[in-house]
Computed example of a mutant assay.
Amino acid sequence: MTRNLELLVAGMAFDHLGKFGAWQFYTQFTPESVRELEELGYGAVWLGGSPPADWEGYEQLLAGSASITVATSIVNVWGTQPEAAADTWLRLEEKFPGRFLLGIGVGHREHTDAYTKPYDALTHYLDVLDAHGVPQHGRALAALGPRVAKLARERSAGALPYLTVPEHTAEVRGILGPDALLAVEHKVVLDTDADRARAAGRDKAGFYLGLINYVNNLRRFGFDETDLTQPGSDRFVDAVVAHGSAEQVADRLAEHVRAGANHVAPQIIGEDYRSALRTLAPLLAQRLN
């Protein structure tokens, strides 16, 4: 398939994703919750926490719903062999055409003893997916920096940034060009008490300030050591965690769309993610008009 045709097919798939999805740890999703999110108008569920490529839940989530996309965010290249990832994609594509997106990434050097030459490991992974027949529109890359964003443009459907700000979204869109997928995660606390919301957001987001790839990326957008030293400043928390009323949160998520994202996936902080997504659904739909 030529790259132009790949982009055409991918563009059709992006329409199916819709503008908003839901990002949660992969074991939090059930067939029932995914079906409800589909009915609420969310176009994709993003399975976080580095799910293994052979996780049996993919098929259960897809079988329990009708049209929503199930996507990994992300399968870690150090933890899952590319052959296994390819087998899973091909099997699910045959049973649920166009509904499974394989998100892959290199994870974090702090958590992986084998973390050497990550860019080379990622390109090798893509080579194996190519050899096993996984098309570019069937996979996407976790991308923060410009180099991997360019690789995402050239060899996948697009980029899946995590823990970013709308300014980063605009930068990545400029690298990807107009046709590639740009699906952005953003954390959410539905709470109008700013101190309480920041405390919840800091408890979740502050962890990532121990990971150098996120810290280096945020430095490029004006954050300094006073912001990025754990547990993180209020300025940091306010930037990466949308909090306040449902209307304020919806406005913040829509900033990524205006900055160039095809799709935004709120990650709800708190035990009852389904309730928060129910509240947000009609407000996010309004932001599309």
Score class of each variant (00 low, 15 high):
H168G: 06
L61I: 12
D234V: 12
L160H: 09
Y125P: 05
A183G: 14
E171Y: 11
V241G: 13
V128M: 08
V77E: 03
D15Q: 13
L284A: 08
R252L: 04
L144E: 10
E271I: 09
A197E: 01
A152F: 00
T2V: 03
G260A: 06
P82M: 03
N217C: 02
E271P: 05
K19L: 01
A261E: 07
I269Y: 12
K150Q: 14
Y125T: 12
P52E: 09
F221Q: 05
G64S: 06
R99C: 14
P146T: 15
A84P: 08
A86I: 05
R35G: 10
R278C: 13
D203M: 07
R287F: 10
L126R: 14
I104S: 03
A170F: 07
R173Y: 01
D227V: 06
T123I: 14
T2K: 15
D87T: 15
R99D: 08
A86T: 03
N216Q: 14
Y208C: 09
L61E: 04
H137K: 11
Y273E: 12
R287G: 06
L7N: 05
G177A: 09
E171N: 10
G43T: 10
E36D: 09
F96Y: 15
L47D: 03
V45G: 07
Y162L: 06
A152N: 10
L228F: 04
G103M: 14
G105I: 06
G79W: 11
F25H: 14
L8T: 12
N213E: 14
Q267G: 00
A261M: 01
P52N: 02
R153T: 00
M12F: 09
E185W: 07
L209I: 02
R196D: 00
H16Y: 01
V257K: 00
Y115E: 02
D120R: 14
Y42G: 09
L61Y: 10
A121D: 11
G98L: 12
L182C: 07
S65E: 08
A86F: 01
V257F: 00
T112S: 06
T30H: 09
F100E: 09
R258P: 01
H243I: 13
Y58T: 01
G11M: 02
P31S: 12
A142W: 01
N217L: 15
L90V: 01
F20T: 09
Y58G: 01
A246G: 11
W55N: 07
T226L: 02
A246M: 10
H186S: 11
A131Y: 10
I68F: 04
L283A: 06
E154Y: 10
S50L: 04
T169E: 15
F207Q: 14
E83P: 02
G48W: 10
L61D: 03
L190M: 01
A66L: 10
E94G: 11
A114S: 15
P161D: 04
G49P: 08
A86L: 05
D272P: 11
D234H: 07
A143Y: 09
R109I: 03
A149R: 00
I268R: 00
P52H: 13
I104P: 05
P51E: 00
L17R: 03
L122H: 03
Q60G: 12
H137G: 01
A114T: 08
L40T: 03
A114L: 04
G57Q: 11
Y125Q: 03
G232M: 07
D113K: 15
R235W: 13
H124F: 08
L284I: 14
L151N: 04
H256Y: 04
